[in-house]
Simulated scan of single mutants.
Amino acid sequence: MVNDHVSARQLLAQELRRLRLRTGLSGRELGRRASISQSKVSRIEAGTALPTVFEVEQWGRVLGAPVETVRSLAIITGNAHLEAHSWAAALSGGRHLQHVIGDWEAAASIVRTYQPSVVPGLVQTAEYARRVFSLFTPGYEDDALAAAVAGRVERQLALYEAGRKFEFLITEAALRWRPGPPHVLLAQLDRLLSISTLDNIDLGLIPLDGEALATYSHGFVIYEGEDESVATVEMIHGPLTLDSEDQVEIYRQRWALLREMAVHGDEARCLLDDLIGRLRRHAARDGGTA
């Protein structure tokens, strides 16, 4: 079970899937017997969800695995939870990170995204996204950068799917942050104005001069699905996935406080219009083009 070129998460996914296939049990039946939703069984085997040690032990017992095998799987699970994934590691597999995120979005009926420092990826223009990716450390090679931008733009098709709801909370500081010339940010703010009119999108903007009910902390996304919910947290070293109900509930509570701080609808569009006007005047004073 040792492979220096495979992360603990990937190794765990491979071994759990191999163990199930060896017994001939379907993912649905395994999930029923182990009290794990079928969708989570699929995501565990794909490596996009990380099971708890208890779930792995249940998995092994249901499939009649030897005690030594279950113990070994539990150790790998512990290593996977401790493993610090860098963005480079996230790109080292066969699928780009953007496609993994797309899987989470596809399984959710409601996606709630909070961003304190940058416009969320799901509503970024291609040029804004390219400049954001170019700031990552370690940096992207040209081909990887192009793939990252393409993957991000492809994900945005979900915004127009019937029956899907997307909620965004973005701080004013994130709207003012500029990863390039003024025209890049202007195009991005125009994009936000446009998507704010879609019926399935709730755009909340948190003004700098509003009364705080919570600290900004770090960005996070809550994927609310029919069977279960998942939260992802953006850290410097890479994304962390939280799928226990207790952990997700903590982020729901923070979301509720942040949402109270936000303006929505016409108020949000007025804030965007004000920021666009300021940026145009700033660009004109500096002799730039907007």
Rank of each mutant, 00 (worst) to 15 (best):
E141C: 04
P182M: 10
F133D: 01
G163L: 07
S134G: 04
Q156K: 01
Y160V: 03
E172H: 03
L192H: 01
T171G: 05
R152F: 10
R152T: 09
G139N: 09
F136S: 11
G139S: 11
F168C: 07
G139R: 10
D190R: 12
L186A: 11
R178V: 00
Q188I: 05
K165N: 09
P138W: 05
I195R: 02
Q156L: 01
R130D: 08
S134L: 06
G139Q: 05
L135H: 10
G151W: 03
Q156G: 08
T197R: 15
A146Q: 13
W177L: 03
F166L: 03
R176Q: 13
L186C: 10
A173W: 05
G180E: 03
H183I: 03
A158N: 03
A144Y: 05
L175V: 05
T197L: 14
P181H: 10
V153G: 03
V184L: 08
A162W: 04
G180F: 08
Q156M: 02
V153C: 00
V184F: 06
G151I: 06
T137R: 13
P181R: 09
G180H: 04
L185C: 00
S134T: 05
E141A: 14
A129D: 07
D142A: 13
R178I: 01
E172Q: 12
D143L: 14
A158C: 02
R191M: 14
E161V: 08
A146I: 12
H183W: 12
L135S: 15
H183F: 11
Q156W: 04
G180Q: 04
L145Y: 10
A187R: 14
G151Q: 09
D190V: 00
E167C: 06
A146D: 13
L185H: 01
G163H: 11
P138D: 14
T171R: 02
E161I: 02
R155M: 09
I170Q: 04
P181G: 06
T137D: 12
L157S: 13
G180D: 00
L193N: 13
Y160W: 02
L135V: 01
E141D: 08
L175C: 03
Y160R: 13
R131C: 02
R191G: 07
D142Y: 01
F166Y: 15
R152A: 07
G139F: 09
T171F: 07
A148G: 14
A173Q: 12
T197K: 14
R155P: 02
A146V: 04
L145K: 03
A162S: 15
Y140A: 12
P179K: 10
A162G: 09
E172N: 06
L175P: 02
F136V: 02
L169D: 00
P182T: 08
L189C: 06
P181V: 11
